[in-house]
């Protein structure tokens, strides 16, 4: 029933030739989503990396109609496009693709409004845990302790002092027809959720964990690996919900310590044992929240 990677069309609707950094997860997200969504799709991107690496006039990587207006309004813009399309007697799929800054922070109002109105659109958040496009500033999504250019590791304050906001749960609380969290490290799960979003009517929210080698300061070859370790450590959970009710949670076969997730990322390089413990506490809390209990400790 669900799509396989080999079933995806060869044709790219988001084409090679864009200017994303090596190892960037965002084009992987976008390229594969578009293969599932198909040609009868209209895309909106607010201000984000995707807007910039997707093309500078007169070049563009998009093979579908594509609109940009501003930063904080993705929810409103996809609402406007969809209503017009409907009034003009068409049924194109309308998709907005925002970053975490555009979703967790400046865009949360328009997103919440569109979700509450149950607009017939798909909202995608590719979450790379900071304002990467403007030079790695903290966002509401940045995890505890991470170094960004606005949460630098100073003599007094070592990185971000707050935890990551639980945006997916905020969206689940909107009780929309469909919401899912995804990761590029789990392609089958990714495709199944994309397909499900495509085939559902009403407001759909897809939240994709999107490693950023430039901002996280890890080897570009490790992006997929970072996505996998995030899930295995409990720093990111793959689940989906319909009308607010969780219908599926992916539970990794093993739970790895947070230390294993952060060790190859420069943004956590300054971590003391105390900071590691604090982040571990966060991950454990999430794990318990999502899976009920922690796995029993086994001697190594």
């Amino acid at each position: 029933m669900s799509l396989n990677i080999k079933d995806l069309p060869d044709e790219h609707l988001f084409t090679p030739g864009h200017t994303a950094c090596p190892g960037c997860a965002a084009p992987i997200v976008v390229r594969n989503l578009m293969k599932v969504f198909g040609k009868d799709t209209i895309v909106y991107a607010p201000a984000n990396c995707l807007l910039v690496f997707g093309g500078t006039y007169p070049y563009i990587a998009w093979k579908v109609p594509y609109l940009h207006e501003a930063f904080e309004n993705t929810g409103a813009c996809i609402s406007g496009v969809k209503r017009a399309v409907k009034k003009l007697g068409k049924d194109s799929l309308v998709v907005g693709i925002a970053g975490d800054g555009g979703t967790y922070d400046i865009g949360i109002q328009a997103l919440s409004g569109a979700a509450e109105r149950n607009e017939d659109v798909i909202y995608v958040c590719y979450d790379n845990e900071a304002y990467m496009n403007t030079g790695i500033q903290r966002s509401g999504s940045t995890p505890f302790g991470a170094a960004t250019t606005t949460t630098p590791v100073g003599k007094k304050i070592p990185g971000k002092t707050q935890n990551k906001k639980n945006m997916a749960e905020i969206m689940r609380a909107h009780e929309i027809p469909y919401m899912a969290t995804m990761s590029i490290a789990y392609p089958k799960d990714f495709l199944r959720k994309a397909e499900k979003a495509r085939d559902t009517r009403g407001f759909r929210y897809l939240h994709v964990f999107s490693p950023c080698p430039t901002g996280w300061r890890h080897d570009p070859a490790l992006s997929i690996e970072m996505g996998r370790r995030a899930v295995e450590s409990g720093m990111w959970t793959l689940y989906e919900a319909e009308y607010g009710r969780i219908t599926d949670i992916y539970k990794p076969k093993r739970k790895i310590p947070v230390k294993e997730y952060i060790r190859d990322q420069g943004r956590f390089r300054h971590f003391t044992e105390e900071m590691v413990a604090k982040l571990q506490e966060y991950a454990d809390h999430k794990w318990k929240q999502m899976y009920g209990s922690l796995p029993e400790e086994k001697p190594e």
């Binding site: 209209i42 609109l67 309004n73 409103a76 328009a110 409004g113």
Partner: peptide
């Protein structure tokens, strides 16, 4: 919509869609 900013954003988007 939930704000005037969204009102104008949605109008621009709808007008851009014809």
């Amino acid at each position: 919509v939930e704000s005037e900013h969204s009102a104008m954003s949605a109008c621009i988007a709808a007008q851009a869609a014809g």
